[in-house]
């Protein structure tokens, strides 16, 4: 009876895991398929090949420029990662560890602005960028992603809030400047949340579909990021020729991204629990 219940329990878990993994497995097997379009006859491909990867990485066509997309996204992600993380940590420190007159009003404004769906402002940003000729360029995308990133300071602030105030007071009495406290005391104590912020900022351009789709609208395939590039591969016109390559691209992008994502989750949880202990 006991054995039966344990088996049943694991059977249920196996069933759920299967449901969650089926699309991922399907992507994996389709990326090795000889079919170019979606395979509609059976779950597993009729024949196995590496052609889709070869076509994606070395082939040339009007639609697919995967290596170029990858480089675009990597450039945008790197710069966004640097600028956004700096912005977020800077704002979080000011709001958490310093006291000045505009602090509360600024936090309230940030709260209200955060309630607007992000791309509402993006529609107008598009026109601004267009008037200075920045649409369809990597620099424009970096500005779009990192410009408003200071608004996402709350998680880092929550972590900084848990650093004991006595530590900061002691440093101030010793004559440390605020800049020193920030760089020498607060930042070294905040590794989990820094890693979380950096990885989070790095992942944005890889995961984002919406902003890129508004900003990179020239139709030139070379200018795209991975997200909208892959999206263009499964549009109604391209689906039957590029679905195999889409899966191959999906696999290639998913591997590094999911590893980073898992690390980020770990540091996020660590950041929260560490904070609780310190508080």
């Amino acid at each position: 009876m006991k054995l039966f219940r344990i088996t049943a329990r694991h059977a249920v878990l196996t069933f759920f895991s299967a449901v969650w993994l089926v699309p991922i497995v399907w992507m994996l097997v389709t990326s090795f398929s000889v079919d170019n379009g979606p395979n509609i006859r059976s779950f597993f491909p009729q024949g196995w090949t590496l052609d889709q990867y070869a076509a994606l990485l070395f082939g040339s066509s009007v639609v697919a420029h995967f290596p170029q997309w990858f480089m675009n996204t990597l450039t945008i992600a790197t710069f966004n990662c640097i600028i956004s993380s700096m912005f977020v940590l800077m704002v979080a420190y000011s709001m958490s560890c310093m006291r000045f007159r505009m602090r509360k009003p600024m936090m309230n404004i940030a709260l209200i602005v955060n309630l607007f769906p992000g791309f509402l402002s993006m529609i107008a940003v598009y026109f601004i960028m267009k008037s200075i000729g920045m649409t369809n360029s990597n620099i424009g995308m970096i500005i779009v992603y990192s410009g408003g990133s200071g608004l996402g300071y709350l998680i880092a602030k929550g972590f900084f809030d848990t650093i004991p105030r006595s530590l900061l007071e002691a440093a101030r009495i010793e004559g440390a400047t605020e800049a020193k406290i920030f760089l020498r005391i607060v930042l070294p104590l905040s590794k989990p949340i820094i890693v979380y912020t950096i990885i989070g900022a790095f992942l944005v351009p890889w995961m984002d579909f919406l902003f890129a789709n508004i900003m990179l609208n020239s139709g030139l395939s070379e200018k795209k990021t991975v997200a909208i590039g892959l999206y263009s591969m499964v549009s109604r016109d391209n689906r039957n020729t590029y679905f195999g390559q889409f899966c191959a691209g999906g696999v290639l992008v998913s591997i590094p991204i999911s590893i980073l994502f898992v690390i980020m989750q770990k540091f996020y949880i660590q950041g929260i629990t560490d904070g609780a202990i310190k508080g």
Binding site: I24, M27, F209
Partner: peptide, 19 residues
């Protein structure tokens, strides 16, 4: 198993599921 499913970028998994 479950985390892997959400670690794949959404636009990829959703476009897959749509097909």
């Amino acid at each position: 198993f479950f985390v892997v499913a959400i670690a794949v970028p959404q636009f990829i998994s959703l476009l897959l599921i749509r097909n």
